[in-house]
């Protein structure tokens, strides 16, 4: 068990998402930065998709109810274990009663908004419809279907994973940077209504920086920039959508659907952020600016392959390190 001693808003239990319930109106949810979640789990010897705590607001403080290996990935946060500073993106060990305090991200070569606290064996809340991710809209999954609060106690897997490794990782934001003119880039594929926007609007969409407004959360990011005009007004029939879809409501300011996106919608879609770059956008802080880069199908699939190759490399390195420690 771990106990939440202090939590900012919107910390939730997340895994890699809930698949197979779209037909009930249930979206996928899951970690906004799936790469960080998987990497933290690999460091600990967990399954890639073991449930962890996603932390977007700091500080976040927990007490360990039993000894356990843990790792903090995602944002480059300042963390302290019983007051002593510890590194993010490194595996650590806590004993029963230890207090872990996760502070805000500090300036670093990569900008990321969310931290993930992974624990050996994973957070053992009951899976609902096949996932431990919190479904905020449906108020189920995760811990009681809601964000975490002070005093919450989360169950851990009865037996943890393998012993802790003294090992860390270079974050994917450093290993696979993607920037143009100093601004983070996310790649996108044109969607069904792309060509029904005015040429000047499309030029602006693909070239201007877009600001992430304060009305942005796990459901979606609302962007501010040039007004995007359709060639003619569009009213579409409701249809399935996925995280990453970039809708343009009649006001002309795009909304990118994120992990808690509803599974269907009807606003015109100019493009879709590729699955391989959702983690990048998921880490972009409110108030920051990003660019959208047009890619084709082959590039989008290759980007996904690269993510998987990076995770494969991490898995291999951690495995080698484990063999080394066992031999020592």
């Amino acid at each position: 068990m771990i106990e939440i001693l202090s939590s900012g808003a919107l910390a939730t239990v997340q895994d890699l998402g809930r698949h197979g319930a779209l037909g009930l109106g249930v979206g996928v949810s899951g970690a906004m930065d799936g790469m960080a979640l998987a990497a933290g789990n690999i460091l600990l010897g967990n399954d890639d998709g073991a449930a962890a705590i996603e932390i977007p607001v700091f500080p976040f403080v927990v007490r360990f109810g039993r000894g356990s290996a843990f790792a903090i990935t995602g944002a480059n946060v300042v963390a302290r274990l019983n007051g002593s500073p510890i590194e993010a993106w490194w595996a650590h060990e806590a004993v029963m009663g230890d207090i872990l305090e996760i502070g805000p991200p500090e300036p670093s070569p990569w900008r990321a908004a969310r931290a993930y606290l992974s624990i050996s064996g994973g957070i053992a809340v009951e899976p609902v419809l096949g996932s431990r991710s919190t479904q905020l809209r449906g108020a189920f999954g995760g811990h009681l279907g809601r964000q975490l609060r002070k005093g919450d106690r989360l169950p851990l897997a009865p037996t943890g994973g393998p012993p802790r490794l003294d090992c860390g990782l270079v974050p994917p934001a450093l290993a696979m940077p993607l920037e143009i003119d100093g601004l983070p880039v996310v790649r996108a594929l044109p969607a069904a209504e792309h060509d029904r926007f005015a040429p000047a609007s499309l030029a602006a969409f693909w070239s201007e920086p877009w600001k992430i407004t304060s009305h942005s959360d796990r459901y979606g990011y609302r962007f501010a920039g040039p007004v995007l005009e359709p060639l003619a007004p569009m009213e579409l029939r409701s249809h399935g959508i996925v995280p990453g879809v970039i809708q343009v409501p009649h006001g002309g300011q795009p909304i990118v659907q994120m992990r808690d996106a509803q599974p269907s919608g009807g606003y015109p879609k100019v493009a879709t952020v590729i699955e391989a770059d959702l983690w990048r956008l998921g880490q972009a802080p409110i108030g920051s600016r990003v660019r959208f880069l047009k890619v084709d199908w082959e590039e989008a699939v290759e980007a996904l392959d690269r993510n998987e190759a990076w995770l494969g490399q991490v898995r291999r390195l951690v495995g080698l390190r484990r063999l080394q420690e066992r031999a020592a």
């Binding site: 009930l24 009213e235 409701s238 409501p249």
Partner: peptide, 25 residues
């Protein structure tokens, strides 16, 4: 169809006289 959020139903057959565009925002 179901969609949008858990349990939500999309319904067919609304009279077009009360059709109204989705909101600007």
């Amino acid at each position: 169809a179901l969609g949008s959020h858990p349990g939500y139903c999309y319904l067919g057959g609304m009279d077009p006289r009360i059709a109204t565009p989705r909101r600007r925002t």
